[in-house]
Every structure is written in structure tokens, then in C-alpha cells.
């Protein structure tokens, strides 16, 4: 079961219980006072939390987020977490991510390639608690394994694997199995689930070995 920190609450939006965090609205999401709805349809991590996967969060964690894109998900993460390092490779979404970072004190945007952790090891601190990864490139397991260096012992990996990025033609389940297999090089897999709202994606929770 998911352990949610105080910074994430289930609140009622449009007549149903949805996740919410406190912070500046980013993408036109509905708000309730200072709480803003975390749209699980637009955020794979949001979908993983809503699905009740084995995620353990207490708030204030040090986070490395790979594949931050426009900052939709990372904005919610920065709302409840501590120092949050957001890595994104593409300049276009980085423009939006910068706006998200301007409105938060604990979000550090990095225009870097997640496949080359050496290029940000001089910035991102060691012993972080959580690694969130949502990159649509081939070799997603490799990226997670290479970035395990930033995690503390027992640190959590929250990963969304996209089957089509690995192999368009193969059966998604086969792709997921081979990615999970490669992950065991650095992680112990705690939970895996297909994400209903994100076709073609597998949510994985793992701990660093």
C-alpha cells in the first residue's frame, strides 16, 4: 500500500477523490484553496500513487527526477519533497519547466542527458531518497542503473517504463520483463503494475540493493 506524506492528500475534485498537493498551479489543474489536483491521467507517478503501489513517502525527501519534461509531475513532487533535482534533455519543455522552478524554492532544473550522469554528478548531491524516472528513450533500465549512484542505500526507484521506446514491434510484456531483469543489476523490485491510464506503460517500484 502507498504511504502518503502529509504533503499529499486525497481531496474531492469534480465529485471524486483525487490526489492533491500544495503549491502554485502549473497546468490549469483544478484547485481547492491552496491544494491543487494531481491529474493522474497526465502524470505517470500520479497514476502509480493512485493505483496504491508499494511506495513509501514521508515528505521532505531528496529527489532526482529524470525526464521532467514540462514539469507537470515534478511540480507536484517539489510540493511535498525536499531538494528536487529535475533533469530534462529537450530545450522546448525546459522553457515551461523553468516557469515551474521559478515559483518554487526547492526545484533545480538541469538541461542534461539522463544517460550521462557524469555531466551532473558535480551538481546533484549523493544519498538522495528517491529516484523518479520517466524517460522515453531506448535503454531505460540502463539509465536507472547508471543513476543509482545518487541514491542512498535502500533508496527508492519510481520508474515508468514505456514499452514502445524499447521496441515498437515486440510484445509489451516481453519488453517489461527484459527491462525489469536488467534493473536487478542495481535494484530489488518491490512492485510492478500496468498503468491503466497510460497505455503501454509499466509502473515499477524498486529499492537500491
Amino acid at each position: 500500500m502507498t504511504n502518503l506524506p502529509d504533503g499529499i492528500q486525497r481531496r474531492e475534485f469534480d465529485g471524486r477523490q483525487r490526489l492533491a498537493t500544495r503549491g502554485q498551479p502549473v497546468y490549469g489543474e483544478p484547485t481547492d484553496g491552496e491544494w491543487r489536483c494531481w491529474d493522474a491521467g497526465r502524470s505517470k507517478l500520479g497514476a502509480m500513487l493512485e493505483a496504491g503501489m508499494e511506495i513509501d513517502l514521508v515528505g521532505g525527501e531528496g529527489v532526482l527526477y529524470l525526464g521532467a519534461a514540462s514539469g507537470t509531475t515534478v511540480s507536484h513532487v517539489a510540493d511535498f519533497a525536499g531538494p528536487t533535482y529535475a533533469v530534462e534533455f529537450a530545450p522546448r519543455p525546459m522553457g515551461d519547466l523553468l516557469d515551474v522552478a521559478e515559483a518554487r524554492n526547492n526545484l533545480f532544473p538541469l538541461l542534461k542527458d539522463a544517460r550521462k550522469p557524469d555531466t551532473y554528478s558535480h551538481i546533484v548531491e549523493s544519498d538522495l531518497d528517491v529516484l523518479v524516472q520517466d524517460v522515453a528513450t531506448r535503454g531505460q533500465a540502463r539509465v536507472a542503473v547508471d543513476n543509482a549512484r545518487f541514491l542512498t542505500d535502500d533508496g527508492q526507484l519510481l520508474l515508468a517504463i514505456k514499452a514502445r521506446s524499447e521496441d515498437v514491434t515486440a510484445d509489451p510484456e516481453t519488453v517489461f520483463d527484459s527491462v525489469c531483469d536488467e534493473l536487478t543489476e542495481a535494484y530489488e523490485i518491490i512492485d510492478r503494475q500496468r498503468l491503466a491510464s497510460h497505455d503501454d506503460h509499466l509502473g515499477v517500484v524498486a529499492r537500491k540493493r
Binding site: 531538494p83 530545450p91 525546459m94 523553468l98 522552478a101 538541469l110
Partner: peptide, 23 residues
């Protein structure tokens, strides 16, 4: 430290975006 890091990372990303948009 985090305040300094924030300024530096935002400046760096803004610069890099401006350059890379020429790509």
C-alpha cells in the same frame, strides 16, 4: 547553498535553452 544552487541552475538552464533553440 540551495538558494545559490537554485539561481545557478535556473540561469544555466535558461542560457542553454536559448542556445539550443538554435538547434
Amino acid at each position: 547553498y540551495y538558494a545559490q544552487l537554485r539561481t545557478a541552475t535556473i540561469d544555466a538552464a535558461r542560457e542553454a535553452v536559448a542556445e539550443r533553440e538554435g538547434a
